[in-house]
Computed example of a mutant assay.
Amino acid sequence: MHPIAFEADETEGVHVHRYLPGDNTAVSRHWPGLFEAWPQDRTPFTEWAVNNNNMEEVAVYLGFVWRLTAGLARYAIPTYYREEAERLLGRAPALVDWEYEVDAEQTTAALRDRGFVPGRSAITKGPNPTPWQAENAARAGVFPLETPRDLVAALHAVLCDASAEISVFAVAPGPERFTRLASALRGPTRPTPAEVLGDDGVFVDLTIGCDLGYYDSLIVASPVGLMPRLADLTADHGRRIEAYEEGLNELTDVPDFLRAMRRLSGVSLDAP
Rank of each mutant, 00 (worst) to 15 (best):
S183N: 09
E165P: 06
P118N: 02
T192K: 14
T179A: 11
V60M: 08
N24L: 10
P32K: 13
Y75G: 01
T252I: 06
A162H: 04
L212I: 13
N54A: 12
D200L: 10
P188T: 09
L88T: 05
D9N: 08
R177D: 00
A49S: 08
R240V: 11
T43A: 14
G33P: 12
N51I: 05
N249D: 12
L258M: 02
P228S: 12
E176S: 15
F257E: 00
L230I: 03
R149T: 01
V224S: 12
A140C: 06
P129Y: 09
P127N: 12
I241W: 04
V224Y: 00
D253P: 01
A73W: 03
P144I: 02
T252F: 04
A110C: 06
I219D: 09
V224M: 11
A184T: 00
A235G: 07
P223H: 13
D236K: 13
V14I: 09
P191A: 11
I166E: 05
D97W: 02
F203I: 14
A70R: 13
E84T: 08
G225V: 02
G201A: 15
N51V: 06
P188A: 14
V60S: 09
F64K: 02
E245I: 13
Y215F: 13
P21A: 14
V168R: 01
Y244S: 09
T207N: 13
Q40V: 08
R180W: 02
G141L: 11
V254Y: 04
T189C: 00
E250K: 12
E105D: 08
Y80D: 07
M227G: 10
R259P: 03
R229A: 09
V96C: 04
L72K: 12
P93T: 02
P191M: 03
E146P: 11
G201S: 15
V16A: 06
E99T: 12
G90N: 13
G238H: 10
T46P: 02
L251D: 03
D200M: 02
P32Q: 11
T11Y: 03
P255K: 15
P175H: 01
L197S: 02
L111H: 04
N136A: 10
A59S: 11
R74Q: 01
A59W: 00
R139D: 01
V220Y: 00
W48Y: 08
S222C: 11
R263A: 14
T189D: 07
G213P: 00
V96Q: 04
A140W: 04
R87D: 06
F203K: 14
R18P: 01
E105I: 07
L155W: 05
G13H: 09
E242D: 14
G201I: 02
G187W: 06
F257A: 15
G247E: 07
T192C: 11
I77Q: 10
P228R: 11
D236A: 15
A137Q: 08
V142I: 15
W48H: 08
A85M: 03
P148W: 01
W66P: 07
M1A: 13
A271L: 05
W132P: 04
S163P: 05
F64C: 12
V220M: 01
